[in-house]
Design a protein around this nucleic acid. Structure first.
Lengths: 243, 243
DNA sequence: AGGCTATTTTGACATATATCAAGTCAAACG
DNA sequence: CGTTTGACTTGATATATGTCAAAATAGCCT
């Protein structure tokens, strides 16, 4: 299951990488000299703040920069003709947003803040230039892109072969893990998104999501208090998604 | 709809790029000097042949090279614990396979030939090195990776929000377009995959796929002769997927 | 060709999830 | 402190797709 495929040792390495590196955006094991690191930091010194509902970019905007999330969270979505929203991703601190637009030069989806958030802008042209000079940065950038491919394919797998409750279990495990990576509890989740948004992301209706939460609670798997979820039986959730 | 988002002018550019370039793998508008092109060709001079069912790589194999498909077609898949196969992609000539493994160093899915096929091996380390020296190659490589992200997100959209017949319509349009890019008919398709494989890719059962084909035929949208599909009403198929 | 096998189609029925419709709850606001 | 508003839950029912089974068709080998 790619949605949730980071093991314990890898997590530890990630944590170290993040704390070494002021740029949480490059939250994968990075291997740069202090000098190289300084050049990278210089590139991304523009930090910006957003509040709930602010757009980081809109569909149709010209692509200029990637963005690294420092704090808060964003969602990406596409709007269908009829106005329905489809959520394509939830982004948390340390993650990079905008990779899909490299191929098109124009953003094809939009990104909005789900709470007060800060991002670093990473001008693509400069980043590309720097990564030509620093091989380990180049490798790093490739890994970030490839990781996004793996993540998306994980969701394809989930949408293509899992049923509602399995999808939700995978979602919760994924949230749990991303929480843990950032040093937060793996069992106490504060979801930033509504049932509607979760459903949209998982290809389900909000009622189905709600019922699944209730059912998990009845089974003693989780404790639900609105958007505060406590995971009571991680192993049993893992079984549900087959790992 | 990202699954199917290449317009006519772009198609023309692609066609040109392909014919200029012996390396069909880099089948996007490329802007290299003859010298640069020569260096690239040199890198990828190992060509290999595969026949139906041969593995290009297996899950667990160490990642070393990307592969560019020259002729034939491949599928990528993951095998679930219980032995069920889930198809994650169909690859056609000019396309690059293996991008997901850059982030892991190890292949997490497997790729098999669906017919007699030829590929060029592109050793990743050499390609990365060369792209550090040739900015437009670097840009190109980024676009290829980003394009894969867009493709995967298109499938997420499709799996998350479309019903069976809409998915199949999107699939047929996608096949049609990829056919057309390579100078083949946009309306006469010879599918290389079974109903089971199509279903696996689209998150449907083979019976559902079959019924959808039959229904499309009843409606006069297509003509079905086993795996030979003739599209009779492209515009109406496009309406079905909303574009 | 003829026969064998795998693939595809079609039908009848089961079931998961969507849909529609009330309710409940909680935060926000006067 | 009551009212309002949006989010969430729960129930009853509809529907799309899955499941199981059989027949038809196509591809393949001798």
């Amino acid at each position: 299951m790619a949605l949730n495929d980071i093991n314990q040792t890898e997590m530890a390495r990630l944590r170290v990488a993040c704390s070494n590196c002021n740029l949480r955006e490059l939250c994968l094991p990075v291997d740069l000299t202090p000098d190289e690191m300084a050049r990278l930091e210089e590139l991304s010194n523009q930090k910006r703040s957003y509040t709930t509902g602010d757009y980081l970019y809109r569909s149709g905007d010209r692509f200029k920069s990637l963005h690294a999330i420092r704090s808060g969270s964003f969602k990406t979505r596409v709007l269908h003709e009829d106005g329905r929203e489809q959520v394509t991703g939830f982004l948390m601190p340390g993650e990079i947003i905008g990779l899909e637009a490299i191929s098109t030069d124009v953003h094809t989806c939009e990104a909005l803040a789900m709470e007060d958030s800060e991002v670093c802008e990473l001008p693509y042209a400069k980043l590309a230039e720097l990564s030509r000079e620093i091989p380990s940065l180049q490798r790093h950038l490739h890994k970030i892109m490839s990781r996004e491919i793996v993540r998306d394919q994980g969701i394809m797998l989930l949408l293509g072969s899992m049923r509602a409750e399995e999808r939700l279990a995978a979602f919760l495990l994924n949230m749990s893990q991303r929480n843990a990576i950032h040093g937060m509890s793996a069992t106490q989740l504060r979801l930033r998104m509504s049932r509607l948004e979760i459903g949209s992301y998982l290809g389900l209706k909000l009622e189905t999501v709600s019922r699944a939460f209730s059912h998990f609670q009845d089974e003693g798997l989780i404790q639900v208090k609105a958007r505060a979820i406590e995971i009571l039986a991680l192993p049993r959730l893992r079984e549900m998604v087959g790992k």
